[in-house]
Design a protein around this nucleic acid. Sequence first.
RNA 1: CGGAAUGUAGCGCAGUGGUAGCGCGCAUGGUUCGGGACCAUGAAGUCGUGAGUUCAAAUCUCACCAUUCCGACCA
Length: 565
Amino acid sequence: MRISHLVSERTKDVPQGANVKSHILLVRAGYIKQVSNGIYTLLPPAQRVSQKIQKIIREEMDNIGGQEVLFPVVMPREMWDKSGRYSSIGAEMLRFKDRTGRDMLLGMTHEEAAVHACQNIIKSYDQLPFMIYQIQTKYRDEARPRAGLIRVKEFTMKDGYSFHTSAEDLEKYYNEVYEAYNRIYTRIGMKNFISVKSDNGAMGGSYAHEFMLLTDIGEDSIVICPSCNARANMEVAVSKYDMPKFEDAPLKEVYTGKAKSIEEVCNFLKIQPNQTMKAVCYAVVGDNKKTVVAFVRGDKEVNEAKLKNVVGGEIVVKDLADTELVKGNIGAVGLKGDNLQIVFDKSLEGLCGLVTGANKEEYHLTGVNMTRDFAGVEYFDIVKVNEGELCPHCGKPLTIKRGIEIGNIFNLDTKYTKSMGMTVAMPDGSLINPIMGCYGIGVGRSLASVAEESADEKGLNWPMAIAPWQVYLCPLRNDDEIVANKAEELYKTLSSKFEVIYDDRKVSAGVKLTDSELMGIPVRVVISPRSLANNEAEITIRATGEKIMIALSELENKLTELCKI
RNA sequence: CGGAAUGUAGCGCAGUGGUAGCGCGCAUGGUUCGGGACCAUGAAGUCGUGAGUUCAAAUCUCACCAUUCCGACCA
């Protein structure tokens, strides 16, 4: 490719409002151009990277028996009514009508399409297991896209779906996919990635993993045990922690005045937060009347993902203005009201001598004894793990890190095959709903994640396996006829063996050299009057900055060695 | 969806009521040129959209739209 004709512009200016490295550099190096909020065009360099990532994904998916398909982007409502997701998914799904007034939608995930594709074609147990996958555009009407390609509305995704006759069979295949994912991320040159246990969310099913790039700009919190290497998304992470012992006492109302928050009440009563019981109130989406009151120990925070699973529906923080609840003085003792659901966290189980709100202004209650005052209630785990609490597996302290989710694998169980009525005949003649697994990788997000991880102060820095071009051919002083002729000759010969971007522009040396670094091309070959005088070229390795002077006759051999993946 | 901000040339920005500006980029000519060269000349704008106030609006008022950041959401 001649850079003079490349549809891509490099610039010194940082895009307005951008503060994430990969976002800034992908724009500055001419890889992407924003069309609208969360919607980007991939310019030629980015599309080349994307296609190399896709090629690696295809190879690994095919390697574990995957069959590539292509589902539609636009689907009719009826397909999604069957699974129940047309109504259960919110504004994130873009809906519209076709010319006849029929309800349609843009695909944001393809479980329904996968079941539709297989049902009635696959009829017998001996056709299972199998896995189908596609690499295609997804559209999710995200409330807040951000950070360039990290979180967008429209993106390319690999999504795969496997079908099995038993849970054991799925688990076996799930582990194969797990290993394939590790190979994919390693092959695209990602270094600091891990897998973590995750929440199934509205996908349903019983177990799931996410693959994460560890980075401070990540949107997810990950709980990691440095000792035994156990890892989980904060949404599902659990820990061991001390259960304090306080002196048992009878219930007693005490004046606390304006003290409302845990901190204020603790200061007022001269106690520690772990001696209090904190109330956090939520509304249930789709049920205006109901209020969920979650009680957790004062030193802990509610984990809304866990609470959502206990409640069995979407929850949002409740505005208490239109309820009977006394904000800042809510307590579980004697708390009554229509449409209240009270959930206790396990951190409270068996404690006594606790302080909680008295359900009236300016008063709290001391001496709360969980066993005595709440006989027979059920306790759920609904709190976030705090840094330093102990690993449930090995008992050592846990740490918390940030990560970007770059892929996930789910056990879907029979959620979709059952709701959509897909059955296969078993050897004994009975019909079962196959068990499904589902496996996603965001291609654009992986691209941005590798960019984020590998870039340095000079610009992007692609691993050889996914670099848009392997070699940056950089003639300096190509106004000189000898240099220009040699460059043209090299461009022709090298292009037959390598992916070459040829800087044929008549601009100063500095511009070419900095552009080659900004674009992150792994190997740069410089020729100039000076090097040609010795029949040499200068090779520079982008990742290390290492410079190698090489005889022109040896150039091809050297490049073959350097471009090896 | 809550909070905050921004919208002026391709990009980054200045411009508080009176002739539309700067830097980069682009075009032409010349001099330079192994780390984002210099000089000269030039092209490029419905100042986000619509209404209002005013003799006069990029500038003041209102509405709308778009974009960005923080948070919520994120299958």
